[in-house]
Design a protein around this nucleic acid. Structure first.
Lengths: 143, 143
DNA sequence: CAAATAAGAGTGTATATGCACGCATCTAGC
DNA sequence: GCTAGATGCGTGCATATACACTCTTATTTG
């Protein structure tokens, strides 16, 4: 009777799994806001930036540019953001929030807050910073 | 001149961001194996189980059942897994690896190992267990 | 200035996920 | 034995991502 060696957990898969669970949780908390946590976050980013180009926003959050473009298109279709040509550069487009986008963002804040607080509660003080550290290390920069 | 309060990082978004980066890294390491890390992991799971039903596999890795079904369909299309009706239950289907699936899995192991080792190196000993702990807490169970 | 390069975007294609429904089959109760 | 749940799955629809290309418009250089 030979004992099987302890199976090593794939770090990437563990991350994906935790991410699925966390996303389901946040999205569930945000039901009724009309936003998913990913969209909420994008709006918040654009809001902080004032106006920003697809490429810059993608770089800022380590996302593939074309993926970001498609995400922004969805928000644009919902009239939460709008793009306008950049002054003196026919290539770039600057994205910014519409009035509806700002309202929507503000209206969703409490739901996000609720999810975030609950998540902080689950992760005791010990693990919360660890997670940020992990994310930072994987990305090679601060989160 | 008033200072803005420190912005609170959304735990879910931090996780998603780290996951994107980790997935890109693993997938890059596994180029040439014909498998993405997600598919590699699925094959490994089925291999360990011997044969398993979609629903059970989905539950095991906390994935939405229909998502799992679609992932398995892709592997089936590639002839890496195959499904057969369960004895005495016309509902269930049992998935197991094909010969090609087993070969493919074995052939991909070194690439996965390389990615995993490198990732372990990046995350010093301190953070690695923390990540598993975080995942476990979010999921409410061991990873 | 013309050619080469860089910068900013969009499209096609493929995965990975989740939710709302709907269908078939099994199993417990009565 | 028949009906009400419980089980196991599939489909339609929508998002989120990534990669390989391609196009257009600046910029830089010889």
């Amino acid at each position: 009777m030979e004992s099987t060696p302890p199976r090593e957990v794939c770090l990437c898969i563990a991350l994906r799994r935790a991410t699925r669970a966390a996303t389901r949780f946040y999205d569930d908390c945000m039901k009724g806001t009309g936003l998913k946590v990913t969209q909420y976050s994008l709006l918040a980013n654009i809001d902080r930036a004032g106006s920003i180009k697809i490429t810059d926003l993608a770089r800022k959050v380590d996302m593939e540019r074309t993926a970001m473009g498609r995400n922004l298109s969805l928000l644009e279709k919902k009239r939460l953001v709008h793009a306008e040509g950049e002054e003196g550069d026919l290539r770039g487009k600057l994205y910014s929030l519409t009035k509806a986008g700002r309202s929507c963002l503000e209206a969703a804040r409490p739901s996000w807050r609720k999810a975030q607080t609950e998540m902080r509660r689950k992760l005791r003080n010990h693990e919360f910073p660890a997670l940020e550290a992990v994310a930072g290390i994987i990305l090679g920069k601060d989160v």
